[in-house]
Amino acid sequence: MSKDQALIAYVTRMGDNAIVMAQRLSEWVGHGPELEEEMAMSNFALDYVGQARMFFSYAGELDGKRRSEDDICFLRDGWDYGNVLLVEQPNGDFGETIARLVLFETFYSLQLEALATSPATKLAEIAARAIKESTYHLRHASNWLIRLGDGTDESHRRVQNAIDRLWTYTAELFEADPVDQIMQSEWQGPDLTVLREHWHRQIDELLAKATLQKPEDGWMDSGGKGGHHSEHLGYILAEMQSMQRTYPGANW
């Protein structure tokens, strides 16, 4: 794989993570525990859509095949989606959505921080913009994790279950495949081993504040980056892509 191919694949994956998170968070509209939280979730979803658009447009520019952001988003099937398994998992209850946000955003903030100095200047620019949003999402979700963990017995139990259930998807975040390796060596992408240590330190600290137990690493699932997804992604794409698939070539 050439260094340019790796960059395209990497940028597309980042767009995939963002758009799948956007789809999941959008599901909260009309269903949140508080109006303020519905607004927060839709606000985060909007941020993710904005990020996905930047990543996809950039990927389209890079590969020179005249693919638009919409072509990349709506006209690829699951095996060409490279989002991590963590983001495609169903929302579960509010606690599980918060737990997923914390686990993912802790990783994503670190990833964006590393990319903000990449010699791929357009990627660095996008990362620098996204990092502000990501930091805010993480702060909001972390505060909720603490509230729920240290709230009532029920909220503690629910959010502990959520962390336990999602834990199996966290190792994939740090598995370096050839795309990650080339990104690190050629484009100053993150060293995932170092990033993993930072992630664990931050998560340890947060879980302690939330009076939650850190799960043991058991069997860890993975495959999303390589296009091997859970059953859930197919439904996300079927829903998201339905208009473009039903009315090919139309302008909206």
Partner: peptide, 20 residues
């Protein structure tokens, strides 16, 4: 029904926020 379900399913969250 949708608004009621959201309210009911969110009760434990609001209780947790208050307790905290």
């Amino acid at each position: 029904e949708t608004r009621n379900r959201a309210h009911d399913e969110g009760r434990w969250v609001r209780q947790a926020a208050r307790a905290y």
